[in-house]
Design a protein around this nucleic acid. Structure first.
Lengths: 156, 156
DNA sequence: CCGTATCCATTCCGATACTG
DNA sequence: CAGTATCGGAATGGATACGG
């Protein structure tokens, strides 16, 4: 491929994020990592993904700096995949996505897993978007400041 | 394909969300919709996407209930694609992803578009994850409550 | 200008087999 | 258990041409 990926140089941070994460599998790998998965087999069983593509995704996430594969914790001959700081910074993204799914993608009687506050065992508060002064803002209260550069491609 | 998509019945809301959105293109379409794009050509120019696949994504997003394509606003023979309430509920997801990209996916001197508070023209406050009582929580302060059902597939 | 239909190249993914 | 190598089928995405 000519460019590593499609949005490598896109001025929009959303596009860059998407580009860095790679694909949906990768996002679910990150989800599992947040949930405590560390080993190849754990990811594989949880996701039901083929081993070759799991290996490829893990490698890509390492290259993107989201995961770090430590050669061996001790004794064992396996690797451990841990979230980097960059990866851990995805926490609000995963939570927002989870909350959207909970609210919008399940029927009334349908069961689903939930993310709870460990201390109180209660669900989390919905993620909110706030202005610098603390005001709650919606989509219509925001505006995209386009970048001034003259390079090609949309600046959304 | 046997099932419409892969995570149609997954008990994890993250997987369902991912499944509903479809792919990265779809997410960028949603981003553009938040930013004011409504018409086929606007999305196409902004994304640089082939027309056939844009049409397919728009249709999928309609089926997922994220976008609603109104036949014609008036006079014109074109359709308008507007976010539904379900689609608008993705706002925190997009913002979280955008903020992650801003912080993690750009070099020091690199320009990028920014999302500003319309009223003050200042950047938004970083999205935070909070417990029901208002405490700020990180990944390690949360726990996934698995669903009890006996069906196959991971419950992450 | 808004889409649909067709074609082709590429990629992706899953299954399987194999190695340490 | 933790990966790597390979293979075939399926789906994707881009370009182009075409129709309302």
């Amino acid at each position: 491929m000519v460019a590593r990926t499609r949005f490598d140089a896109d001025p929009c941070p959303v596009a860059r994020s998407v580009n860095a994460i790679g694909d949906w599998w990768s996002l679910l790998i990150v989800r599992d990592a947040f949930d405590g998965s560390r080993r190849f087999g754990e990811f594989q069983r949880s996701l039901g993904i083929a081993k070759n593509i799991l290996a490829a995704r893990l490698r890509a996430l390492e290259e993107a700096g989201v995961l770090r594969g430590a050669p061996a914790p001790e004794g064992g001959s396996h690797r451990e995949y841990l979230l980097t700081d960059k990866g851990r910074a995805l926490f609000p993204v995963i939570v927002a996505l989870r909350q959207w799914g909970e609210g919008q993608c399940f029927g009334p009687g349908e069961d689903h897993s939930r993310l709870l506050d460990r201390r109180t065992s209660r669900p989390l508060r919905p993620v909110e978007v706030r202005a610098a002064d603390g005001r709650l803002v919606g989509p219509e209260d925001t505006v995209v400041e386009k970048v001034h550069g003259t390079e090609a491609g949309g600046a959304r």
